[in-house]
Every structure is written in C-alpha cells, then in structure tokens.
Write a protein that binds this DNA or RNA. Structure first.
Lengths: 216, 216
DNA sequence: GGGAATATTCCC
DNA sequence: GGGAATATTCCC
C-alpha cells in the first residue's frame, strides 16, 4: 500500500460517544484525519530536510509547516505536497480532497495569498486538543426547535460514560420507553385533532355554501 | 498512486438519476466499483497468465475468474487477490472491504466452500447490465406506518431480561433513540400540517364573512 | 451481512 | 465551502 510506512491506528469513536451521528461527549481519540495531519506537520510533510541546514535556511524549501508561533499551518508547495506528502498519509494525492477534509473539520483558510489554515484547537504542541475537534454535521435539524423539549434529556442520557454500568443503561432504557410512549400519545392526539379539524372544515364549507346560496 | 495504472473514469450518477437517495431512472454509467470488478475479471485480476498455457492449464493458478458459464465469479486465492489485485483497482488491500462492497451492491456468496459470488446482473459478456445494479439503501422509511412499533416491539423489548448482556441493552438503546427520532419527525410533520390547516381555515373564515357581509 | 462513522470524490 | 454520492473502515 502507498501508506504502508505510516502507522495506521484503530481510532474509532466509541458507540456512546457518537449517538445518532451527533457527538455529545468528547471521544478519547482524535479523528484519523486530524492525527495524520498533525503528524505530517511534526514530520515536515514526510520529506527529509536538507542536511545541516537550519529551519530558517530550509524555510523556502519547506513543503508544509506550522507558522511562526504554531497557531496555523501553511502548505508552501501544493504540488509537492500533493505528490509527495499526501500519498504517504492518505489514500489519495488530491489537494482538493485534503481541503475538503479541512473544511469538514472546521478549519478556515486565513490568507488569500497562500494556503494557510487555522483551527482554534489545532496548534503546535497541543496534540491533546485534537480530540476536541469534531466533524461538522449537516445542521439542518430534521425537526424544528419547538421539539427540543427532549434534548436536555438527550444530553443527560448521552453524557453517561462509555463504561458505565448496566444499571445506568437500564435506567436510560426505561426513560426512552417512557418517552416513546409519550411521543406516541402525542401523535395519537395529533391524529385526532387533524381528523376534527378536517371534519370541521368540511362542515364549515358546506354550511358556508348553503348560506351563500340562500342569501343569493 | 497505487492504482495509477488503472484508468479512472469520472462516472458520477446524474442528478436526475438519483433523487432523494432513491434511484428513479437507470443511470447511464455503472458504479465505479462494479466496473472495476468487471474489468478485473476480464484482466485476470491484473496478473499475467503463465505464458503459453491454456486457460484450463492455468485454472489452478488463477487468482480470480468467472465460473465456467460466466454467471458467477470466484476468488480462488484471497491472499494473492488482496495483496496483488485489490491495490491495482482500489485504494486498499483488504479482502473484507471488497466483500463489504459486494454486499452493498447485492451480491450473494453462493458457496460455503469457496469465495464464489453471484449477482443476476453481473455476468461475463454483459457489461451493459452493470448500470442496472444499484447500491442497497437503508430502507428504514423516515416516517414509519403509524404507531406500528407500539405493541409488538414493546412486547419484544420488554421481554429482555433485566440482567441480559450489556451489548443487547446498548443495541436496544440505540434502536430506541432511532425510534424516538422518527417519532419526533412525525410530530414535526403533524405540527406543520396543523399550522397549514389552521391558516387555511382562518383565511376561509375571513373570506366567508366578507362574502356574507356583502350579500347582506 | 449490514449499520454507521470516516474518507474520498464529484459537483454546485 | 459545502451537499451528497460512493468508498473504506470498524464494529455488531
């Protein structure tokens, strides 16, 4: 494989950490993409520096690096980055796919003149912050905010730690079933109300037409 | 790149071909995975045959091939297939990922003794049928039939003993949350419909009163 | 086998 | 930039 020289880690997010596609508690491990990108910067893009030259002397030769204070990173040479660096860490050599991932994780391009990217939680020497970076979700909430009533409970139930004991699971389970019953009852009410409304509407229409006919 | 020797085609499905995740008209181009797998079979797994030997003589050496009548195909040597063939056509060398794709596209493993797979529309000499093969979709309709889960599933979930395996609890839990989301979406629909109905009704009443007033 | 998360591609 | 389809991985 192209990236056989790169350590592949099994860094999955625990089941309870991402529930229904929404990460509610911080996972222990950063996303593979973030770790690879961080490592790539530590390793100078996976390409050796010129022997004996200091960082400053090498600056113009760098493919990719942190900025001076380590709060952003810069892809100095997109072509070499794509051809040499990307395939060492990822399963492709497309700069645009790399950019797509950066966007997915909320990085911002902060310069129109060069390929410089920034994320608050992605900084030199702060590997521990990587696990706080999450993928952007399609935030088009499927149901409107007035249904958020249960979201507090969501937070509560989902904050249970992964290795919590069975008792908590059973409790959460019980609550979910109770909630399901309530939702089903709400739906039953809606159905009844819809029926009444439609009935009323049709009566009203009939009535109205009779009245108009009589008045004419 | 690992597969730089393989022709990559831009075969996207047109917008109208897949509407809301549901394929409505047959796309012009087969899925990349299907085309690659078909080509891989035509090309003997991308590995050269022994010179001068007939197909029959080579049979025991084949990595992958169609069966005798070309209605199924067989991976004769999963190890060589993974190491040599897969990376030539795909971005990985994992046999299980290949299997996962076969399942996604509806192939069936038809032998317990060897890695033989079948799909009605995947046959030797029938490249034109490939475009009729589609990915399986998650068929969980977003709006389930009303309250269908109330009795049977209640009974089922409640029959699970309290001290059952944690895995089952987690699974049940996941299902309950999924169900909750579906119910919440149903309620959102109802609310929207109610709003429309009320709006319509009030317009109708206004209209009616004006009309009656004028006639009087 | 298949659900679901992440990765890659394609397109607007 | 980001939506959405397909691909790959991971897990049950």
């Amino acid at each position: 494989m192209a990236d056989s020289n790169v350590l592949e880690l099994n860094i999955g997010v625990g089941k309870l950490a991402s529930q229904g596609g929404q990460s509610l508690v911080r996972p222990r491990c950063p996303a593979p993409f973030l770790l690879k990108t961080y490592n790539l910067l530590e390793e100078g893009g996976g390409v050796l520096d010129v022997d004996g030259a200091s960082d400053e002397e090498n600056e113009s030769k760098k493919i990719v690096s942190w900025n001076v204070d380590g709060t952003t990173f810069v892809v100095w040479s997109p072509d070499e980055f794509s051809d040499l660096t990307l395939p060492r860490y990822f399963k492709h050599n497309n700069f645009s796919s790399f950019i797509r991932q950066l966007n997915t994780y909320g990085f911002k391009k902060i310069s129109s003149k060069r390929w410089e990217f920034k994320h608050e939680k992605f900084q030199r020497g702060c590997k521990h912050l990587l696990s706080e970076i999450t993928r952007k979700k399609c935030e088009t909430s499927v149901f409107p905010s007035y249904l958020k009533s249960s979201s507090e409970e969501n937070a509560m139930t989902n904050s249970i730690e992964e290795n919590s004991d069975q008792r908590l699971l059973i409790e959460e389970n019980k609550n979910l079933k109770k909630e399901r019953l309530e939702l089903q009852m709400q739906i039953a009410e809606f159905k009844a109300m819809e029926m009444k409304l439609l009935e009323y509407l049709s009566q009203f229409v009939d009535n109205h037409q009779n009245k108009v006919r009589r008045l004419c």
